[in-house]
């Protein structure tokens, strides 16, 4: 199978800041990718460049083997509805869907109709008068019903309540099962989307800090809690990504897996072991990977940490 997206050493510099720094990626077909990271980490910038809506300052971009810029052969197969997607003021949701149906070869009106019912979206109301959540629903519906070979969802849930978000995740899994395609889902609500992802890409301050199968990452770290001294003995030379101390107790997150005898040893030392979720690990990593971000310490965790 051929690679869908190939990015080599892409940087994006705005006047004062670097939005992307040396990003190199390869995305395989028919997988659901999670593009995770904090707000402002560079997720939208990267997706804009991949869809030729934005431009890289340097580096190579190949989508379906070609440069996407002004390239109809490539763009025909892509759908990218932005988080803050603009629609013509005069449009209703119905106009937007009719337009989308013109341009996406695999458009499923049946799916669109069903999603409209699911999200209880008023079709004939002027788009300017829709709530933030309803506006997001319009984008989600276009993204799903387009069935584009390469679909980007950029934080698609803004203003959607928990029920509507779950609906989106369910429909995504369901339709993807029947019509496999490459999906890139950008999000900072990691726990919510973690189980949907086959592959995880974590971006932090414009750099890719994680690029691996979700299942590999899930088993790749553990947390030990117990007396600080015993924890230290137990961990030995393992790579620690995070540690918390409280009186004589320590809670340490370390990389690696534990075999049976190590698990037994921990139990005998009276240490507690806990698995580390994708979200916890990403939070730990994005915090440890950004020592330069001491300025961001006043907002240390944002939503990600919770």
């Amino acid at each position: 199978m051929s690679t869908v997206i190939e990015v080599t050493d892409v940087t994006k510099t705005y006047r004062k800041s670097e939005a992307l720094r040396g990003v190199t990626l390869a995305l395989q077909p028919d997988r659901i990718y999670g593009l995770l990271g904090r707000n402002g980490a560079g997720k939208t910038t990267l997706m804009s460049i991949l869809t030729a809506q934005g431009f890289a300052s340097s580096g190579e971009v190949r989508v379906f083997g070609e440069h996407p810029y002004e390239n109809e052969r490539v763009l025909n197969r892509i759908c990218f509805i932005r988080e803050s997607q603009k629609y013509p003021d005069s449009f209703t949701a119905e106009h937007a869907f009719k337009s989308a149906a013109l341009f996406f070869a695999n458009w499923s009106q049946e799916l669109a109709d069903r999603l409209v019912t699911d999200f209880q979206l008023p079709l004939r109301r002027n788009i300017k008068k829709l709530s933030r959540g309803q506006l997001s629903a319009v984008g989600v519906i276009i993204g799903l019903a387009s069935r584009a070979e390469l679909t980007f969802f950029d934080e698609p849930y803004l203003g959607l309540d928990a029920v509507a978000r779950q609906l989106f995740y369910d429909r995504l899994v369901e339709d993807y099962s029947r019509h496999p395609r490459t999906v890139v889902l950008s999000s900072h609500l990691i726990d919510e989307v973690a189980n949907l992802l086959e592959h995880v890409i974590v971006i932090d301050q414009g750099r890719i800090i994680m690029d691996d199968d979700a299942e590999t990452i899930r088993g790749s770290a553990f947390t030990v809690v117990g007396s600080a001294e015993k924890v230290r003995t137990f961990l030995g030379g393992r790579e620690v990504v995070h540690s918390d101390n409280f009186a004589s107790l320590a809670s340490v997150t370390a990389l690696g897996t534990l075999n049976e005898s190590e698990t037994r040893e921990a139990a005998e030392l009276g240490l507690e072991l806990a698995p580390v979720s994708l979200q916890q690990l990403i939070v730990r990593k994005t915090m440890s990977a950004s020592p330069a971000s001491s300025g961001a310490a006043d907002r240390p965790l944002s939503e990600v940490a919770r």
């Binding site: 997988r31 659901i32 779950q166 995740y169 369910d170 899994v173 369901e174 993807y176 099962s177 029947r178 189980n195 949907l196 992802l197 086959e198 979700a214 299942e215």
Partner: peptide, 14 residues
């Protein structure tokens, strides 16, 4: 596997 995926809300490949 698709039924498992839909029921547990997980990626079908998983």
């Amino acid at each position: 596997t698709n039924e498992f995926a839909a029921f547990y809300r997980i990626n079908p490949a998983t």
